[in-house]
Design a protein around this nucleic acid. Sequence first.
DNA 1: AACAGTACTGGTAACGTTTTCAGCAGACCA
DNA 2: TGGTCTGCTGAAAACGTTACCAGTACTGTT
Lengths: 345, 345
Amino acid sequence: MKHEYVTMKGATMKEVAAHAGVALSSVSRVLNNHPDVSEAMQRQVHDAIAAVGYEPNLLASSLRRGSTETVGFIASDISNPLFAEIVLGAERRLDESGYSMVLTNSEGNPERDEAMIRLLRRRRIDGLILSVADEDRPGTIAELSKLAEPVVLIDREVSGFHTASAVFTDHSGGMRAASEHLLSLGHRRIALISGARSLRPVRERLKGFEAAFATRGLQVPEDLLRFGSFSAPFGQQATAELLALDDPPTAIISGGNLLLTGVLRALQAGQRSVGGDISLISCDDVPLAELHTPPISVVDRDAVQMGDAAASLLLDLLAGGDRPRVAEVPTHLLLRGSTQPLAVD
Amino acid sequence: MKHEYVTMKGATMKEVAAHAGVALSSVSRVLNNHPDVSEAMQRQVHDAIAAVGYEPNLLASSLRRGSTETVGFIASDISNPLFAEIVLGAERRLDESGYSMVLTNSEGNPERDEAMIRLLRRRRIDGLILSVADEDRPGTIAELSKLAEPVVLIDREVSGFHTASAVFTDHSGGMRAASEHLLSLGHRRIALISGARSLRPVRERLKGFEAAFATRGLQVPEDLLRFGSFSAPFGQQATAELLALDDPPTAIISGGNLLLTGVLRALQAGQRSVGGDISLISCDDVPLAELHTPPISVVDRDAVQMGDAAASLLLDLLAGGDRPRVAEVPTHLLLRGSTQPLAVD
DNA sequence: AACAGTACTGGTAACGTTTTCAGCAGACCA
DNA sequence: TGGTCTGCTGAAAACGTTACCAGTACTGTT
């Protein structure tokens, strides 16, 4: 038997209509379950759809309809377990409202950020959730401004772009609590390691850190501040530097969950025992923090809730919400074995 | 000059053409840098584009062109750090060839898997990379079969669907090495905890496990096999059960990096010291494994390479490669402090 | 009986692109 | 001079939908 591999280039509505012996527009009505369509027509069309193996073309549909029912999500770092939860929370919420989500990651690269915004804009997404890699980059701001669709920022404030809603974390509150706790344990030489100062979470954490010192009338140990990037290698390098100081810190705050890995590597390399030689607090409760020996105290937050909040804000704008709004999710300090009173010699 | 800030509801090529005083088709030619277009025309059109603020509509373009230059990636679990690396590897490779990637996650839910395949198909993606949650689910197979575009499976073999390329991990080799190592340390009561048996990695790991026992003429301890899901809670529950046995294991193999978290929780709760009371090997080198006390031996593999391989296979098919191919990435055993000789009483 | 409304259907013009086809210069060759 | 060729451009037909506008056949009201 000779197979005629007609590739079946995918049947269209036109062929469905022909097969059912009805008009093209009737098929469309059935598919979009328009109110005014008879039982008979319903069956006829559905049978024809099954018969020819019709598959809707969302490109054509979106083009005509003028909306894609899709929102974009640009994650700055997929490998951060926190983002996975944010994405999850957002996706569930969007699903409920019939939107689907396309996820892209910028790998923390501002240029990719820019490219992704542009790409999604050209794809005509209906809305965008993102957490830009650099709040001040002109190119990013320009791309965002060209976007007519609603935007929700996650833990970012982009200078000169005030038409977006945003969901913030109370980083300063969390960091203040963490710092106060260390101070109350007697620590004074407390180091803070975090990402680039151009990011809101970093600025906020620093604020909280400074506030804790201020309320006690103490000087912030400026020489122990290290801002670079939210990466394990930076955490490792910064920690190694700090340990090598003449007057090294007695406690370290790791402002970012990926940093923690690096910090721990450096402490291990430097033969410092966590909790014993040096106290440690990190941000975001990842398995590593919980299962480390000793377990590591963290400033935690509900990432799923963040995603949910972001999606809700976006849906609000999509539904015609006129002015941007802001949501804030709280942080809470989880105390574990890594924070101990300062040993007095 | 008075700036007329008309909101410019997105200029189209038509308006560019009008502004430049040329034909629509000429604008198109310039944009797709067609060979036959004069210098003058180039400038004229580009000026007009800048003037009216034109932005290409990829929906229309894809519809007309018949291809989206986009491949889909369905991740079964975004929160698995391994997937992040696979995605990274794939995305980089695809980028080079001018394809972009849309990422979705199925949360390990077979129904979502199915829905995502259907959605992407309707979006007319040019190809698909995925790792289905359930290899035997008829619905998934049906959805995949309806897809005319090339598919690459990651660590999965779908029964009755042989038109896809695939990238496999040498799980059986890795697991065999791990098992042999434990046997050589004197362990005989070795437990294996892994995901659902309907997944290739689980089957392969079991094969390697069994092979190691077989070559020594030993019986596989059937009562110590636990297959359920790749999740922390399952790892915890299975481990707790194993510890409660009359003749508990002296070594545990965690066949999945998310399982490890649960296994460690259960061991902690059961007051067992890793390496001392019980030896432990996990799969995939995550920070938790490296930084645990003691560090945990793992069967590792290069996840970025997996993504790269998957993308390469897909690109091959997209370029007209007629028949599906298979790539295999190796595993290697990293020995650390969690595996110790069996203590003799 | 005339009219207005209701329930349904068909035809057709968009949506914003790309691609084919034909046309028009001028150049080159014989 | 006539001819084909080459470089460039414009017009128009797709791509697969949805939405609008009529039109038809009933139903109910006065």
